[in-house]
Design a protein around this nucleic acid. Structure first.
Lengths: 207, 207
DNA sequence: CAATGACCATACTGTGTCGTATGGAAAAGC
DNA sequence: GCTTTTCCATACGACACAGTATGGTCATTG
């Protein structure tokens, strides 16, 4: 005994992908687990992210989970990491723009975050931010993402002709407003919400 | 058997307060439970609000809890209710102002919410809003509080000379920004955060 | 074809939690 | 003073969950 192959914290799926790529089997890899975990996270929060629940969603049992991950904490770390790189990739895509279109791109960013089609993305965002209130690791990831986001939009404001200080304040205002709105329940506050949102976006972006 | 006195859902403490008021004993009343519960809620979130944990904090056992409350859900309802009335009371106090001082009062409101001294209040706020993402009851309370808040500050904006539509958008922007900022991690974004906040407040309030 | 390793199921321990049943102590009421 | 009511402790059953141990199945490899 004791000769069980050493299980890495998170089994690296890049170290020998079974065969080549074809659907040789329907077996699970860590990424599948993480994807499913993020789904649960969005709906139930971190505390609702249980191993057995997740296994049931994947159609397997705990035995499989503990093959791919050392423990629950390892999954949580993987979730944070995957979210972080996904966010940074999105931010880069969202804020790379040809000169002269900065303001338009800023409007687009606000619209995307506030859109109801992005409901799931915002649920993940809020779940992780709530998670970060108790967990230093999550807090560190959130801070990294926030600082990156803030700096990207800051550049857009600067390139659209603002001072650096003003650009920073606008950048912070933009994201604060976007997340804050997703936190509030204001659907019955007015019967022309799109006009309200338009005014807000103008206030944030316009010089 | 079966003659045990009927336990109300939440034992009304106003229906015969034991003696008069004096410290005749150190026994617990529902309000004490709710106060302690809100404390735990702020630190651990709803899912961390367990009966036995709460009992230990109060220095008693579960037996006491289930005397004062029908079940855990009854406590949660009481927490929501107490938070709701407390918020509405605060809002009224915060937005009642002599004519001419509206803008000053709006600045004060932003400052209070963003202040670090109000850390606990904001923790409760965020915990309840996260709770509201899964629980319709909590969502209803949050909506009621939000609508009340939004309307109170809307009046301030109107009285300071804005159109109703503009006032509404400013009101929404104000609270969204306040809650959004408390959700972000931006302490390392700039070394003059107070200037940043000042600019943001100006942007929200100034005409 | 035999051996190895990857992947998963089953069974088990231990803990935390909800809710109930029941008894005990102290105050309140007569 | 005796009974009733109030408030709490203790003990219990049921369940959900984390993590471990161990064996089984199938594909891959030599």
């Amino acid at each position: 005994m004791e000769n069980k192959p050493v299980k890495p914290l998170i089994k690296s799926s890049s170290a020998k992908p079974r065969k080549r790529a074809a659907a040789v089997r329907t077996q699970l890899d860590p990424e599948r687990w993480v994807d499913e975990a993020i789904d649960v996270l969005a709906k139930e929060g971190v505390t609702g992210l249980r191993v057995e629940v997740l296994a049931k969603r994947c159609g397997v049992t705990k035995g499989s989970f503990y093959w791919h991950f050392k423990d629950r904490q390892a999954l949580l770390c993987a979730v944070l990491e995957q979210w972080k790189i996904g966010r940074i990739r999105d931010i880069e895509k969202m804020t790379s723009v040809t000169a002269g279109n900065e303001r338009q791109q800023l409007h687009y960013a606000i619209e995307v975050y506030g859109a109801s089609r992005n409901r799931k993305g915002m649920s993940i965002e809020l779940a992780i931010r709530d998670w970060a209130r108790h967990d230093p690791q999550a807090a560190a990831v959130v801070e990294a993402v926030d600082l990156y986001r803030l700096d990207c939009t800051r550049k857009l404001f600067v390139e659209s002709g603002m001072s650096d200080a003003e650009a920073k304040s606008r950048s912070l205002l933009l994201y604060a407003c976007v997340f804050g709105l997703s936190l509030m329940h204001y659907t019955h506050f007015d019967d022309n919400l799109s006009d309200l949102k338009q005014r807000i976006a103008e206030r944030i972006i316009a010089s």
